[in-house]
């Protein structure tokens, strides 16, 4: 069995935390992510969304089942070609914005001129040009998240995983960052998987939204959005947008209720 058809694929993946509590966190679940697709994943809190991302990124090994990326099994390490953006600020506070963005390229041993060219390009694309020499502490949360996205972008990943990247930002900043994410997706042609708890964010950004059940998380529905490729945050005013969000909520509501029950128990 290989992941030939899909860019990334999970088959029968579970994740169980051993120990006295023995938490069955995830699955068993199957997932095919098509090359170049923008897939959003929503689910009730605690359903294992982040665990799913960890398995796909190679940050956590599945307890059973298989994870594939570009015809190779993901086992224990992050495969080349995968970039991850976390919810928390992951910029290195001791480096300038430019050095943060250049970090991965330097470790990869590229030559100076090429690093400068790529860093400048990524900074410009993310609107960070004039902050190149600033330190993260001097920037707002949204700007720091841009630094982290730029640091991922320069490495030209073919599969970008984002774990609630705008969760800590205010609503307006989130909408604008969503636009930037769409621009980035169009420009790089990368496959994108976005974990989010915000239904509107998923409905606005993705080609397809996967809805997960309460823990142990499985996929209960995949909802295609039908947006054109050159969409932006203005789709929120389209009449279909409300119907789409309502459809996602109708799938999610019973699961969220169940998750609340789990939390109370």
């Amino acid at each position: 069995m290989s992941g030939a058809a899909a860019h990334a694929r999970l088959t029968g993946v579970t994740r169980v935390y051993a120990g006295p509590t023995h938490v069955h966190a995830l699955g068993p679940l199957d997932l095919d992510v098509a090359r170049g697709e923008f897939l959003a994943v929503v689910g009730p809190s605690g359903c294992g969304k982040s665990t799913l991302l960890d398995v796909l990124a190679g940050l956590a090994a599945p307890s059973s089942g298989e994870a594939w990326f570009e015809d190779r099994r993901i086992a224990g390490t992050v495969p080349d070609g995968i970039g991850v953006v976390f919810q928390e600020d992951a910029s290195f506070p001791w480096l300038t914005v430019a050095d943060n963005v250049a970090f991965g390229l330097r470790r990869a041993g590229l030559d100076g001129a090429e690093i400068r060219r790529r860093v400048e390009d990524a900074l410009g694309f993310m609107g960070l040009g004039e902050f190149a020499r600033a330190y993260p502490a001097q920037l707002s949360g949204g700007m720091r998240q841009r630094v982290c996205i730029a640091r991922t972008l320069v490495l030209a990943p073919r599969f970008i995983l984002l774990d609630e990247p705008f969760g800590a930002l205010d609503q307006q900043t989130r909408l604008l960052m969503g636009d930037e994410l769409l621009r980035l997706w169009r420009r790089t042609g990368a496959t994108v998987l976005l974990i989010t708890h915000a239904l509107d964010e998923a409905a606005m950004l993705a080609d397809r939204v996967g809805v997960m059940s309460a823990r142990p998380g499985r996929f209960i529905a995949f909802v295609p959005t039908g947006w054109p490729r050159d969409r932006d945050s203005r789709v929120v005013s389209a009449p279909e947008f409300g119907a789409l969000t309502a459809q996602l909520w109708s799938h999610l509501r019973p699961e969220s209720l169940r998750a609340m029950g789990q939390a109370r128990a």
Binding site: L59, T77, V78, E88, G104, R107
Partner: peptide, 10 residues
């Protein structure tokens, strides 16, 4: 998250 970033950057 900084240590996770180190892993992501391989």
């Amino acid at each position: 998250v900084l240590l996770r970033t180190a892993r992501v950057l391989r």
